[in-house]
Nucleic acid binder design. Structure first.
Length: 212
DNA sequence: ATTATTTGACCGTT
DNA sequence: AACGGTCAAATAAT
């Protein structure tokens, strides 16, 4: 029926990495996040003394927002590069748990905002919709293809792929593509209900990927 | 019944 | 022709 065979940017999954990052901007973002977290924590202490339920909910919301924002940065090489260059006090934060990148030196290709990460957890704070999986030639596990869950309602075309890698510890190659245009709506009408809905794929689930 | 996941076909790229 | 990214029908889960 729907023969929407519009081939989009099936860009090659070479060593495509993020482009330039403005360190001032990123530093400001990180500082503001840090300030917000500190203020929220301080406010939480005050709220606990007064036991206000509504206020407590707001506090949780605030902390959730900061958490998601920091996770967003965590899902980007921007934060990693920045923290590696400048030793900020929150460089030891648990939110910055990017794994060492096993990829050798790569050319800095200014591609359309693709970022390849190697993380121990494929989850993030975005809502993704799984639209397919594919057996990959030299990989033991298939690659999972996600598009932002707000593609339809908010016309957000951010995508990501998750490829579990073999190894002693579970590491996932995660490639983010595109921008989350849905984020601009997040703070306007309150929530974006971007609850993480990614199925935490354990390797045992699809270990039966026998011969083709 | 609705939503999520699986699966294979389709098709562009290499 | 092989590979892999996308689509959508089939199936499973809730």
């Amino acid at each position: 029926m729907h023969s929407s065979k519009e081939r989009k940017n099936t860009t090659t999954m070479e060593s495509v990495y993020h482009g330039q990052s403005t360190q001032e901007e990123l530093g400001e973002v990180m500082n503001n996040l840090q300030r917000g977290l500190n203020s929220a924590s301080s406010l939480e202490v005050l709220i606990q003394n007064r036991s206000g339920s509504n206020a407590q909910i707001l506090i949780e919301d605030i902390k959730s927002c900061f958490s998601r924002a920091m996770t967003t940065l965590n899902s980007s090489n921007l934060a990693n590069d920045f923290l590696n260059q400048l030793q900020l006090p929150y460089a030891n934060s648990q939110n910055i748990n990017i794994h060492s990148n096993p990829v050798r030196s790569r050319p800095r290709v200014e591609a359309n905002s693709q970022e390849k990460l190697f993380l121990d957890n494929p989850d993030d704070c975005y809502a993704w919709s799984l639209y397919g999986q594919k057996e990959i030639r030299n990989s033991k596990y298939p690659r999972f293809y996600y598009v932002c869950a707000h593609k339809e309602d908010l016309d957000c075309h951010a995508t990501k792929t998750v490829l579990p890698l073999e190894g002693d510890s579970a590491i996932y190659e995660i490639i983010y593509s595109g921008q989350h245009t849905c984020l601009q709506f997040a703070n306007e009408d309150g929530f974006l209900n971007s609850q993480p809905r990614i199925s935490s794929n354990s390797k045992d689930s699809y270990a039966s990927s026998s011969d083709a």
